[in-house]
Design a protein around this nucleic acid. Structure first.
Lengths: 252, 252
DNA sequence: GAGATTATGTCAGCTGCTGACAACTGGCAA
DNA sequence: TTGCCAGTTGTCAGCAGCTGACATAATCTC
């Protein structure tokens, strides 16, 4: 329960949220091979999902800064201290969904055939990820809408943006390692893995921004509800513009 | 002075630091045209510089997290409240030097001839910035060493890294606007300014990392003390690797 | 079912950060 | 010089994020 004496005795947010949790957090990892299915583990996963879900909902309705950790914890009927045992900080709860998505992407990238050239592999892995993930929690397209909302929340909240970018940097490092291993290169010597990862990350972020902006714009053709194909198309368009952006004179 | 009752009555850090302040914060803007030279303004600038300087020193010697805002304020003989009137938060004090450098870079970029192609302009602006800035506070190379230390501090402090990346994102947005204006493009339509800015930012960051790593490595040829040419060379090398990283198969 | 593990709650406390108000200081004009 | 105005600073009080320590309650193992 909330920190003693901070909130009035009658809690504002009742603890009935254990119902539709994990609508966002779940990822199509059907059954992790050696997953311990003990009651303990399941319970832990449930409260974790519930926390992510409650946080997401509160952040979107009241704003990130205006939402207290106490509130989130209370919404799940858990002590504040417990919240911090699941997440290192408030941001982590907000970005947990993205963390899962990145995990999935890494899996996809590792699964690409080694013969493929690196850029193609990245391109394919990203597209697969978007397709699979939005199919996974598409309860009538809600998955994509939720992603949109989250991206906008992040972009409009300095603290969250900072945390998100830091996470992205970590992710980039992992990608560098994967690419280097694939091609049998030492990333400290050969700059190409690092550069490709960095550029790719930049393109993804740029696509996110464009997507988010396009969907917010009222007189845009893009509907808020069309599937992941829109995002995939955007990413492709960005990737295609990459070379022209880097070479020669822009004027025509 | 420090928050009441938190620190022992006899302050630990004496307030004698008004001496060599601004060794880091100063930027070669010889004399801002319409700079109001009132005593008030000068005093403000002095305490600001002193705060930046004290923060830098304390962060490097004790670590970022272990350094209290109270300590920094006490070192300059100023109240904690005053510290927060100069900086929105602890990070801002740590990254103030970089903010100045970015400001300088923007100025350089704006000054590039309009006929130049965008990539060339960025390349030139970055090189000029490094050269000028390290010349400016090179009291025997200390400028570059200080930059190195700061970069490493940032890279090894998650909070700082996050704040730094967020700042970089802001900077990127400014660069996008400048590029778009230069070429007479609407960045919402034409992706190239955004992509070039993003890619360039990624390359710079990658070069920073490499530089920092190279200088930490004990058995590297790079000395900790050679000038900005080393960094410039690194950036050039990264930029040259950009195209190869994006095209075709990496194996030879 | 007993004992070892592990998750949770409670308590106390530090640190970052902010609003409000009072006291001071430099700038400026009468 | 005097005296007012505006901008700067210090003090106080307080919230919110986060953590260590310890006790308790829930699972797991045998």
């Amino acid at each position: 329960m909330a920190a003693p004496g901070v909130r009035p005795p009658g809690r504002s947010a009742p603890a009935r949220y254990r119902v539709r949790m994990a609508s966002l957090a779940a990822v199509p990892n059907p059954a992790p091979p050696g997953a311990p299915t003990g009651l303990r583990e399941r319970k832990k996963q449930r409260t974790r999902d519930a926390l992510v879900d409650a946080a997401h909902r509160l952040f979107l309705s009241q704003g990130y800064a205006a939402t207290t950790v106490d509130e989130i914890a209370a919404a799940v009927d858990v002590s504040q201290r417990t919240f911090f045992r699941y997440f290192a900080n408030k941001e982590e709860a907000a970005l947990a969904v993205l963390a899962d998505a990145e995990e999935y992407f890494v899996g996809r990238l590792r699964a690409r055939p080694a013969a493929e050239n690196p850029l193609t592999a990245m391109r394919a892995a990203i597209c697969e990820s978007w397709r699979d993930l939005s199919a996974a929690h598409a309860h009538g397209g809600r998955g994509v809408t939720a992603a949109l909302e989250l991206l906008q929340l992040i972009e409009s909240t300095p603290t969250l943006l900072a945390a998100h970018l830091r996470r992205s940097a970590d992710q980039e490092r992992r990608v560098v390692e994967i690419l280097a291993a694939r091609e049998g290169l030492d990333p400290a010597v050969d700059l190409r893995p690092r550069l490709l990862a960095a550029v790719f990350g930049a393109v993804i972020r740029s696509a996110h921004l464009a997507w988010s902006a396009e969907r917010t714009d009222p007189d845009s053709q893009a509907s808020r509800d069309d599937g992941p194909e829109a995002m995939i198309a955007l990413i492709e368009r960005h990737l295609d513009q990459l070379a022209p952006a880097l070479t020669g004179d822009w004027r025509r």
